[in-house]
Design a protein around this nucleic acid. Structure first.
Lengths: 218, 218
DNA sequence: GGATTATTTTGAACGTGTTCACTTTTGGCC
DNA sequence: GGCCAAAAGTGAACACGTTCAAAATAATCC
């Protein structure tokens, strides 16, 4: 467990040997897993290889991560949090919502470009890992993005560049859905060397459809 | 291979024993796989159990399907084709595009309701199985739906209930993206007994956002 | 220090999907 | 019928993710 149980008169000491070696082991596992995943991709990396490189027994891996997928998350969790924070920290003042959104999603696209071997798989897990032992983590990540998009939408509404719809979350979800599908399409198409500009252009075009709507203008 | 090689003076006869027993075996495998998948779900069904119930050796399975996922497709391919055909055959004349679309997607939702154990997995494969040995089949299925939606959009444009955008495929993709994400969300939320009405209501609401757009109306 | 208890590590063992060298069956030929 | 080559079938064997009972280690108490 992450926080050791305290029983009797404080059985576990903060700077104790146990805690230190756990931290060191966790670090080794993270590093080993990251190296191998990035180097070989997810499927081609075996848990045995990770254990070996980390210098721990096979079983030990599964006391630090619930399963192989969670190992992936163990690595990228922090990065994804920081990525989302950075993406939403910028505040574009572009007069068109689609441009503000593309500015945000640009960071995500760039991130995936940097992880070509893992991007597709990571995306799949982010999309479909909803029922495993550590599913809440991915769930949290999705929610964070949707919430961030909702904030962008709210600001755009306050700036008067879009109309009030009464439900920013609904709009945010639609935008997130389109982004998710587009980034997937992008990675599936130019799989070998995904072209950032192409991907963002395609994304912008679809988002603009959403912004414009389909109704006859009166 | 599906089509036997013809060499010399026509080595393979149409009504020969070989063809007949291949057809019978394929039927047995399909039936066994279907029963087990529906009964136990995808993960809990082993290839050994399928082979046993079909009365064939384990290795034989993999001469009829490239892998376990393809086995799933072997079963549902025909059904999915028919489902799409039926869904797009109806021609709603509702005055709002969102309603016409919901009428189409209703059939898909209803289909997933009938396969609760498999729906989520089938959906995942339809979304992400883009690089396996038989990926083109799923690709085809996706393309078929997008094309169908594009046709609905084109008709709506002809009927004057939406404006011309110049690119129906782009709009169709946006709609498909939203549908895919919504159906996934629906199945993930009420996983145990998905409520058809709830799902369609949520879908309609998001689609209406797309139809209305977000721009300030002049 | 030594004894005791809680925590952590570990790899052998299990169940799984998949492969492939071998066997069996089929169709054409005489 | 008997013979041969092509096709199809088969399960032992492999590699993998994961589990868990046993061993090793650390913390606490005297």
């Amino acid at each position: 467990m992450a926080t050791p149980m305290i029983r009797g008169g404080g059985r576990t000491v903060a700077g104790g040997l146990r805690e230190r070696s756990k931290a060191r082991r966790l670090g080794n596992i993270r590093r080993a897993a990251r190296e191998l995943f990035v180097e070989k991709g997810y499927d081609a990396t075996t848990t045995r290889a990770i254990a070996k490189r980390a210098g721990v027994g096979l079983g030990t891996l599964f006391t630090y991560a619930a399963d192989k997928r969670d190992l992936l998350f163990l690595i990228f969790n922090d990065e994804l949090i920081e990525l989302a924070a950075q993406a939403f920290a910028q505040s574009s003042s572009a007069p068109v919502l689609a441009d503000r959104l593309v500015a945000v999603f640009h960071d995500f696209y760039a991130y995936f470009t940097r992880q070509p071997n893992l991007a597709r798989f990571l995306l799949r897990e982010l999309t479909f890992y909803t029922h495993g032992p550590e599913a809440h983590r991915f769930q949290t990540h999705r929610d964070r993005i949707v919430a961030g998009v909702a904030a962008v939408v709210a600001r755009a509404r306050a700036d008067g560049i879009i109309v009030a719809t009464g439900d920013d979350m609904l709009v945010a979800r639609a935008i997130f859905d389109i982004y998710s599908a587009e980034v997937r399409r992008w990675l599936a198409d130019d799989q070998h060397e995904p072209n950032l500009a192409h991907g963002l252009t395609a994304l912008r075009r679809v988002l603009q459809v959403l912004v414009d709507g389909l109704r006859p203008q009166r």
